[in-house]
Write a protein that binds this DNA or RNA. Structure first.
Length: 424
RNA sequence: GGAGGGAUGGGAGAGUGGUUUAAUCCAGCGGUCUUGAAAACCGCCGUACCGCAAGGUACCGUGAGUUCGAAUCUCACUCCCUCUGCCA
């Protein structure tokens, strides 16, 4: 959530920046926000003056000796009038607050200066390509073809159990998933300095507001019948751990890693990636979250990207890094790098990780603050990145490591986790 | 699931309708003293909002209510603890 005080001070800047994120009617949205804010503050002042009056009359009434005197009765009538006025003002105050919150909750984060301005993914900028794309002397199969041929993926039975967009991994592929989770967690904890956590994958509504999934993206989420939500990413529980807390600056930075299942309704993705396990309702992901002082956030984003890249490097999978444009970035992000891995059957790079700085956007929503050296309370900066999406890593390994005879070579770094060198 | 108890500022803990706009202790910060430190003593020490400021307002788990006035009374909800049942 943007900081209202900042918008008030710098309206034109915010208008320009919100417009650059292709929000409809952004100018009039911000204008009405500011006018609501002005009348709210006028009403607050009025309310406070009346409350002050009420308090002092009440005090006088309390000190009064003769509760039957004319003076006492006069004051009583007066304070009743004041009370009625306060009630009226309180109604308009709560209406204004509601309107202001509604607007603030739907405005996206302000992009950093170096983020390219464009309406969609066409404006994303390729920053680098890493790794050699393997030339096959046969036509490489897609991961779902490989999976079915080796009898390691069962889409049909999964559909019988749960419907479309689910899959069952069997035998060596089930083990590969477990191997990847362990491998990634080991690298991030031992090499990259993140602390491993095991977190709930059901969270309450407050937490979903905190990281920005609600109220805007309700239709993308799975909800239980007791007001809990299945997390769409480990970012939600990990980041919300600092909600409503004042962290001491000595404890910063906080760096968390967790492997969790993720659940996405994929509403609005009808017809997209319907074959295979590219886009599922449920998938595993190893998530990295950093909580830092705002001045260190850009540096921390680079560390996050590097940590995620390290996994692909070790797996020897070809990838490229994209800087997302203002229109393609997620709602809470001020700057996002996507890592895309090479998918031979599609002859395309596809997203396997997304690393974002959310500046104080999430911390403002969840009141996550820290105590500065000079004892002031300031909002923290939050960052998150996938390190990596497990399902898509499996796809990338199956396709990039396939041999002509149909077998799959296991990447060197995974062999000790799999206790074998190939799958056939 | 059943029965009972509880939720107060970083921690401990008083306060059950009107000098409590929350006592006191511990921790923390600043100072005096000291060669330095400790001890002792003095001062400061929750959060948010409004206001140029002086100052004001709100917050005692959350939400509603009673009252001229609520940390204190009423109702609902959430969470925690003890006992108990069932169960991974």
């Amino acid at each position: 959530m943007l900081i209202l005080k900042d918008i008030r001070k710098n309206l034109d800047f915010f208008k320009k920046k919100i417009k650059s994120r292709y929000v409809n009617n952004s100018d009039s949205l911000l204008d009405s926000l500011i006018s609501n804010d002005e009348s709210l503050r006028k009403n607050l002042e009025l309310q406070q003056n009346l409350q002050n009056k009420r308090n002092s009359i009440s005090k006088a009434l309390g000190a009064h000796k003769d509760k039957g005197s004319d003076d006492f009765k006069k004051l009583s009538t007066e304070v009743t009038e004041v009370k009625n006025e306060i009630n009226k003002i309180e109604t308009s105050i709560s209406n204004l607050k509601k309107k202001i919150d509604e607007t603030l909750y739907t405005l996206p984060n302000i992009p950093l200066e170096d983020v390219p301005v464009a309406e969609d993914e066409k404006g994303n900028v390729e920053l680098k390509k890493v790794g050699q794309i393997k030339k096959f002397d046969f036509k490489p199969l897609s991961h779902d073809e490989i999976g079915e041929r080796l009898d390691l993926i069962d889409f049909e039975t999964a559909t019988e159990l749960s419907g479309s967009r689910f899959s069952i991994l069997k035998k060596d592929l089930a083990k590969l998933e477990r191997a990847l989770v362990n491998f990634m967690l080991d690298i991030h904890t031992e090499e990259n300095g993140y602390d491993e956590y095991n977190v709930p994958i059901l969270v309450n509504t407050k937490a979903m507001y905190g990281t920005g999934q609600l109220p805007k993206f309700r239709d993308d989420q799975f909800q239980t019948n007791n007001d809990l939500w299945l997390i769409p990413t480990g970012e939600v529980p990990l980041t919300n751990m600092v909600a409503n807390k004042i962290t001491k600056y000595e404890k910063l930075p906080l760096r968390y890693v967790a492997a969790t299942p993720c659940f996405r309704l994929e509403a609005g993705s009808a017809g997209k990636d319907t074959k295979g396990m590219m886009r599922q309702h449920q998938f595993s992901k190893v998530e990295l979250v950093s909580i830092v002082q705002p001045e260190f956030r850009e540096k921390e984003l680079e560390k996050l990207l590097k940590s995620a890249e390290r996994i692909l490097e070790l797996l020897k999978l070809p990838y490229r890094v994209m800087l997302l444009s203002t229109g393609d970035m997620g709602f809470s992000a001020e700057k996002t790098y996507d890592i895309e891995v090479w998918i031979p059957s599609q002859e395309k790079y596809r997203e396997i990780s997304s690393c974002s700085s959310c500046s104080t956007f999430q911390s403002n929503r969840m009141k996550a603050r820290y105590k500065t050296v000079d004892n002031k309370n300031e909002l923290l900066a939050t960052l998150n990145g996938s390190g990596l999406a497990i399902g898509r890593t499996i796809i990338a390994i199956l396709e990039n490591y396939q041999n002509k005879d149909g077998s799959i070579e296991i990447p060197l770094v995974l062999q000790k986790y799999m206790s074998k060198k190939s799958i056939s």
